[in-house]
Design a binder for these strands. Structure first.
Lengths: 202, 202
DNA sequence: CGTATCCGATACACCGGTGTATCGAACAGA
DNA sequence: TCTGTTCGATACACCGGTGTATCGGATACG
C-alpha cells in the first residue's frame, strides 16, 4: 500500500524523502521525458532504492501527477502574485512584463508541462483536471482585465474580457511551442510581450 | 541491417509492408503515445512479426521519425494547396476557412505531432529539422500575405508580413493545445478563424 | 531512555520486450 | 517455368525493470 493514509504518525523523514523523490523526478523527467524514464532511474537520482519509492507512490503515473500538481500550483501562485501587484488601474506593459517573466523562466518546466499535456490529451480524467486548472488561470486574467476596464480599452474583436483571456492563454501556449524548439528565451519573452501588449491595447 | 540500401532490386512487397507498418504505427502512437508503445504492439497491429519490422527499420525512433516526416509532408502540401487557390488578391476569410479545415481536421494527428514536438524539444538535431519545416510553412504564409499586400491591409503592430506569419503559427500552436484537451473541434475551428481574421484584417 | 511504530533497504520471482541468426516462402526477371 | 534474390516468420538468448514480502535501523513520543 502506498496511498494508505490511515492518519498514523505524521513522520518527518517521510516528507523529506517524498520531496527529494519529487525533485529528482523533475530533473529526470525534464531530461528524458515521461515514458522514457524508469522508476529505478528516479530512485538512483534521488539517492534511494525502489523500496522508498513504492512506500511513497503507487507507481510512475501517481508520482508524475503529484509532481505536476506541485509545480503547477507554484506557478499559479506566482502568476496571481504578479497580477495582484498593480493598483485598481492596470499598467498593461508592466503586468505583461511580470507575467511573462514568471511563465517563461524555466525551460525544464516547459518540457515537463508539455509532457503532462500529452499525457492528459489521452486520458479524459486527467484532461478534465488540467482544463480546470487552466480555467482558473484564465479567470484570474479575465478578472484582472475586468477590474481595469474603463481605465484601459480592450479591442472589441476578441469578444470581451473572456475572449481576451482566452487569447492570452493561446498566445502563451503558442510561444511555449516555439520556445521548446529554439530555446531562445529572450526572444520568446520579447515576442510574447509585444504580442500581448498588441492584443490588449489594440 | 535495416537502412542497408545497396540499390538492389526495387521490390514491391517491401513497400507495402513498410506502408502498412507506418499506418499501424500511426494508430498505435496516437492511442498510446510514443514512449508507451512497444515494437511488438505495432507489429501486431499491422499483422506482421518483429522480423518484418527489423527488416524495414532500425528501431522505434527511426520509424517514428519516418512516420512524422510522411504525414508532415502531406499536411504541408495540403496547406500550400489551400493557400494557392485564390487569385492575386487574397480573400482572407475564405483562405482562413480552408487552412483551418486542413489543420484542425484530425485529432490523432495533433496527438502524434505533439509527441514529436516533445521528442524534438529534447534532441537538438531533431529540433533543427522541425524548425526548418515550420519555417517553410511560415514562409509560405508570409509569401501569400505579401502577394496580397496592397489589396488587404495588415495591422502594423505585428511587424510586417513576417511578424504576421509568426503570429498565425503561434495562434495555430495555441489552439492545438486547447484542442488536445477539450476535443471540441468545431469550437476550436471557429475560434481560430475568428482570431486569425481579427489578426489579419485588424 | 525505552519502546512502539514507521520507513526504506534488500532479496526474490517474474515478465515483457529486445535484437540477432537462421531458414523457408514469395517474388522479379529471363 | 525456372532460378537467384529478397523478405519476413520463427526460435533463441538475454536483459532491465517491476512489484512484493521481509527485516533491521531510524524516529517520534511518553
Amino acid at each position: 500500500m502506498a496511498a494508505g493514509k490511515t492518519a498514523g504518525r505524521v513522520t518527518r523523514r517521510r516528507l523529506r524523502t517524498r520531496a527529494n523523490l519529487l525533485d529528482a523526478a523533475f530533473s529526470v523527467f525534464a531530461a528524458k521525458g515521461f515514458g522514457h524514464v524508469s522508476i529505478e532511474e528516479i530512485c538512483e537520482a534521488a539517492g534511494y532504492t525502489r523500496g522508498a519509492f513504492y512506500s511513497n507512490f503507487a507507481g510512475l503515473d501517481e508520482l508524475f501527477f503529484a509532481l505536476y500538481a506541485q509545480r503547477a500550483e507554484l506557478i499559479a501562485e506566482q502568476v496571481s502574485g504578479a497580477l495582484a501587484l498593480d493598483g485598481p488601474d492596470l499598467d498593461v506593459p508592466a503586468a505583461v512584463d511580470r507575467v511573462t517573466d514568471v511563465l517563461l523562466l524555466d525551460h525544464d518546466w516547459l518540457l515537463v508541462k508539455t509532457d503532462f499535456l500529452v499525457h492528459a490529451a489521452r486520458d479524459p480524467e486527467v484532461a478534465r483536471g488540467l482544463l480546470e486548472h487552466r480555467a482558473r488561470l484564465r479567470r484570474a486574467i479575465a478578472d484582472r482585465l475586468a477590474r481595469a476596464r474603463g481605465h484601459t480599452e480592450l479591442p472589441a474583436v476578441l469578444g470581451g474580457v473572456e475572449g481576451a483571456a482566452h487569447a492570452v492563454v493561446a498566445a502563451y501556449d503558442g510561444v511555449t511551442t516555439r520556445l521548446l524548439l529554439d530555446r531562445d528565451v529572450a526572444g520568446a519573452r520579447a515576442w510574447l510581450k509585444q504580442l500581448l501588449t498588441a492584443l490588449l491595447t489594440g
